[in-house]
Amino acid sequence: MKQIEKDRLYPSSDPFIIVDEDTNKWQTHLDYQDYLYRSISNRIPFPIYEDELKRLNDYIVFLLEKTNEETEEQINLHANMKPDWSWVGTAEIEMTQESVKSTWSFNRKNTLYLTAITLLNSFLESCLNDLVKLFISEEKISSKGMSMVEKYVSVLNEFLKSNISMPKYLKESKKLRNEFVHDQLSSSEVDEEIVRYTIDAIVELLYDIEQEFINKEIIDK
Rank of each mutant, 00 (worst) to 15 (best):
residue 73 E to Y: 13
residue 132 V to N: 06
residue 48 I to T: 13
residue 56 L to V: 10
residue 68 N to T: 04
residue 40 I to F: 08
residue 43 R to I: 09
residue 31 D to G: 14
residue 69 E to L: 10
residue 144 K to W: 12
residue 118 T to C: 02
residue 31 D to P: 03
residue 39 S to P: 06
residue 144 K to I: 09
residue 116 A to N: 04
residue 60 I to R: 02
residue 64 L to Q: 03
residue 24 N to E: 10
residue 83 P to R: 11
residue 101 K to G: 03
residue 57 N to C: 07
residue 17 I to R: 04
residue 66 K to D: 06
residue 135 F to V: 03
residue 109 K to L: 11
residue 140 K to Q: 10
residue 56 L to T: 10
residue 150 E to I: 08
residue 138 E to F: 06
residue 63 L to I: 01
residue 58 D to V: 03
residue 22 D to Y: 15
residue 66 K to E: 14
residue 115 T to Q: 01
residue 77 L to F: 14
residue 136 I to L: 06
residue 114 L to P: 02
residue 40 I to Y: 07
residue 53 L to D: 01
residue 83 P to M: 06
residue 30 L to K: 07
residue 77 L to S: 08
residue 127 C to H: 01
residue 38 R to Y: 09
residue 15 P to N: 09
residue 125 E to F: 09
residue 60 I to Q: 02
residue 19 V to A: 07
residue 48 I to A: 12
residue 32 Y to A: 13
residue 111 T to L: 13
residue 66 K to R: 08
residue 147 S to P: 07
residue 11 P to L: 06
residue 114 L to E: 05
residue 82 K to G: 01
residue 106 F to D: 12
residue 59 Y to M: 01
residue 94 E to M: 05
residue 21 E to W: 09
residue 74 Q to A: 07
residue 31 D to M: 10
residue 61 V to G: 02
residue 31 D to H: 15
residue 56 L to C: 11
residue 8 R to T: 02
residue 71 T to Q: 04
residue 18 I to M: 08
residue 138 E to Y: 03
residue 125 E to Q: 11
residue 133 K to Q: 11
residue 105 S to K: 15
residue 110 N to Y: 06
residue 144 K to V: 12
residue 48 I to N: 12
residue 83 P to S: 15
residue 53 L to S: 03
residue 86 S to Y: 08
residue 142 S to D: 09
residue 42 N to V: 05
residue 91 A to G: 09
residue 18 I to L: 10
residue 32 Y to H: 11
residue 42 N to C: 04
residue 100 V to C: 03
residue 133 K to P: 00
residue 18 I to G: 00
residue 130 D to V: 09
residue 9 L to Q: 04
residue 114 L to W: 00
residue 13 S to G: 09
residue 74 Q to K: 11
residue 125 E to S: 14
residue 9 L to E: 04
residue 105 S to D: 13
residue 122 S to Q: 14
residue 52 E to G: 00
residue 43 R to F: 02
residue 52 E to S: 08
residue 62 F to Y: 12
residue 16 F to G: 06
residue 8 R to K: 15
residue 129 N to H: 10
residue 33 Q to P: 02
residue 68 N to I: 06
